[in-house]
Write a protein that binds this DNA or RNA. Structure first.
Lengths: 340, 340
DNA sequence: CTGAAAGCGCTTACAG
DNA sequence: CTGAAAGCGCTTACAG
């Protein structure tokens, strides 16, 4: 195993100064074409790579962005929400395309994020990804902002929220799927999911749902059940619906995971979906295509989202003006709502 | 937004030299307790963080490991295999526990991995994760080794393979699930999955399967169909089984994704699982618990795997002796094999 | 177009 | 226990 080559080694071999090597390797137009090619050839032969630490230290930037995945402390620790995993994939790809490295880290909301702002040195900017309660981490985000850290957050844009947000139009998603159910002739509804201030995404979906019902004069027949976001929560909520004799014609779930639980509880109670009751979810996670019946749901375009997040952050890093962006939500119709 | 503080700023405020600041911040026992505490307090007040680039450059290490996720070029580009996603989660957590950062990057087998050895500067070691053909990337891995790069690979340990491998016992997994089916009284079998040299994991599962059949004198009634690893492959293979009138009592799939496709093709052909035919998968991806019927499968313990991978790599980085490790595979029995 | 020199912010022998 | 100094490997004004 040879010592790792430095730019001085190349300079020596190429018969030029180390400055010229650096310029040649960075494709500076200042350097003579022939010299540049010679230097690059030698660098390749030696399998030389610039030392990122040195280069970053000198340039005072890292060409790296950090992804902070924080999970709601109530969610199942062992399994990451598949939606975030999909986002992670698209973010990874978007970073690669932009020639940025991606540092990934999981955080709990309670954690001391200091461990991560520390990344202001290791990363040029931060992507914040996770559902959860604004107010819980607002102070931390505000601190990021006051430190001048560049960051973008995944979530519903919100005037009160510091920094830039990219999100999916949860209100419109809730509207669209509810409109679809109404068009299918459903008259009574239940919504399963937290509609409180602690889950703004869910709340927006809920508002889209209730506003649409209201528009069609169907509000009176709607009930709502709380469920955080796990399968068990969904199952419990549906069981309670059954026990209270409040089972409606259509159940709108705030997430696919909740809908999985709802389907399970209905199956156990020998209630047929979609014949007896229609069920819809939200997120279009991979599983939703494989349930029986396959779940109708609302899709957030994770590929687009990843690109948008990375592009926006990169523009922010370059001190360009960046703005919130709200992506449209698309409904995916499968069997669970009985449209066929 | 203030300028970022440096160790000199702290030295100035604390009335000590910059060297002492550095030592105090690194908890060097050399420095007087009182001085150390004063320095640390001031550092905290200024929200000072050591510049990782400078520190890494000086120490010539990065406290970062890189994860190279390479995907088989034949697999569906848009969706990452959920198994790898689960691994990614556990690796992320294991890194965090060890106070290492994780750089994530996706690679195609065709890619020039140079872009990543480049990480020898940015990362102290590399984790290689992905199914696929050894021979395809063997030269690249050999090059990693010859450069003295520290790396660990996820996959079946193999004497011919350069470097250290951590993997799951695919042979034993194939055995266990086949034994279970035989115990249930199944007499005729089909295996769906590539059993060639290009997919060593699948081949090991296949050998576990055939050896077990042989042990029970059931070989004659076994057929094998090729399928790379996607759902469509599994569906195609089962259709062909049906068309050729070769449908057995039990179908052993080399992966859960293949099994998903198998279930779909059987449902379309109005063949009942598990009454008419038993189906089992491999991987225990999240989806497998939600199919109808729920899929019996073989689990690789991703949490343990992530920890093992990180621990082993870290030991390799410290130039400790590291060895291949083969994790046991556990069977997960659900409804699709008709045991209930 | 090229070179000599400064300096990014640390850590760590070396000397006291 | 502490300080002055060197140096990690680059990039980039500055001067020619």
């Amino acid at each position: 195993m040879k010592e790792k080559a430095t730019s001085f080694d190349i300079a020596h071999l190429a018969g030029v100064s180390q400055s010229t090597v650096s310029r040649a390797l960075n494709n500076s137009p200042l350097v003579n074409l022939e010299t540049r090619e010679r230097v690059q050839r030698i660098a390749q032969e030696l399998n030389y790579k610039v030392d990122k630490n040195a280069s970053n230290l000198r340039k005072q930037k890292s060409s790296t962005i950090a992804l902070l995945l924080f999970e709601d402390p109530t969610s199942d620790d062992s399994m990451i929400n598949p939606f975030f995993l999909a986002m992670l994939g698209s973010i990874t790809r978007a970073c690669a395309k932009a020639n940025y490295d991606l540092l990934v880290s999981f955080q709990n909301l309670e954690d001391d994020w200091h461990a991560e702002y520390e990344d202001s040195n290791k990363a040029d900017g931060i992507i914040l990804l996770g559902y959860g309660n604004y107010t819980d981490y607002q102070t931390k985000v505000a601190q990021l902002e006051s430190q001048g850290t560049h960051f973008v957050r995944w979530g519903a844009p919100d005037k009160d929220h510091p920094g830039v947000s990219i999100g999916c139009d949860n209100y419109q998603g809730g509207q669209s799927i509810t409109e679809h159910l109404i068009a299918l002739g459903k008259k009574t509804f239940a919504f399963i999911g937290d509609n409180g201030v602690h889950a703004p995404e869910f709340m927006a979906r809920y508002r889209g749902y209730t506003d649409t019902l209201e528009k069609h004069n169907l509000t009176a027949k709607s009930v709502q059940r709380n469920a955080i976001s796990t399968e068990d929560d969904g199952s419990d909520a549906v069981r309670s619906l059954i026990e209270c004799n409040e089972l409606p014609e259509a159940i709108v779930c705030a997430s696919d995971l909740i809908a999985m639980g709802a389907l399970r509880a209905l199956r156990r109670a020998n209630i047929n979906v979609p014949q007896d009751v229609a069920v819809v979810g939200y997120d279009n996670i991979a599983v939703s295509a494989y349930t029986t019946p396959a779940l109708s749901t609302v899709q957030q375009n994770t590929n687009l989202a990843g690109e948008l997040l990375v592009d926006t952050l990169l523009r922010a890093i370059n001190n360009e003006k960046v703005e919130d962006y709200l992506m449209p939500a698309d409904i995916i119709i499968r069997q669970s709502c009985g449209s066929e």
